[in-house]
């Protein structure tokens, strides 16, 4: 299992790494949307799940999500938003734009592991 974590916070990426390692998976990290799209160009064939923050420099999560879903090479990879954005309208926007799952910070590591497993099982 290979997971791409896109989050500008080093701390959050470390927490995600811990959860992915619990599941014996591999993590690739990107610290903003632009970097994430560059990573996708190189690695998309191996990526099983994308965890995506919303508020990031250069290119925010919603823009990244739209670009991922507009590209036929990437659109089949499930995306879980992992964000502090908890307003209902934003959750709806993300789901409508193609996010498969939505996890609001704060979360426990157990919850994160469970949601990663669900996302992997369900796919898109």
């Amino acid at each position: 299992m290979k997971v791409l974590a896109i989050d500008d916070s080093i701390m959050v990426r470390k927490i995600i790494r811990g959860a992915v390692e619990v599941l014996d998976g591999n993590l690739i990290e990107a610290s903003d949307g632009i970097e994430a799209l560059e990573v996708m160009e190189e690695e998309y064939k191996d990526i099983d799940l994308i965890l995506l923050d919303w508020n990031m420099p250069r290119l925010n999560g919603m823009e990244v999500l739209k670009q991922l879903k507009a590209d036929r090479r990437f659109r089949g990879i499930p995306v879980m938003m992992v964000t502090t954005e908890s307003e209902r309208k934003n959750i709806v926007r993300a789901i409508q734009a193609g996010a498969a799952h939505y996890l609001i910070k704060p979360f426990t590591i157990e919850e994160l592991v469970k949601r990663i497993m669900e996302s992997m099982g369900k796919g898109e």
Binding site: S9, V12, T83, T84, S86, E87, R88, I104, K105
Partner: peptide
């Protein structure tokens, strides 16, 4: 600590 502020603020904003 920056991210802690960010996470703390998210739910209050909502």
């Amino acid at each position: 600590v920056g991210e802690l502020v960010n996470i703390m603020t998210g739910e209050v904003k909502a």
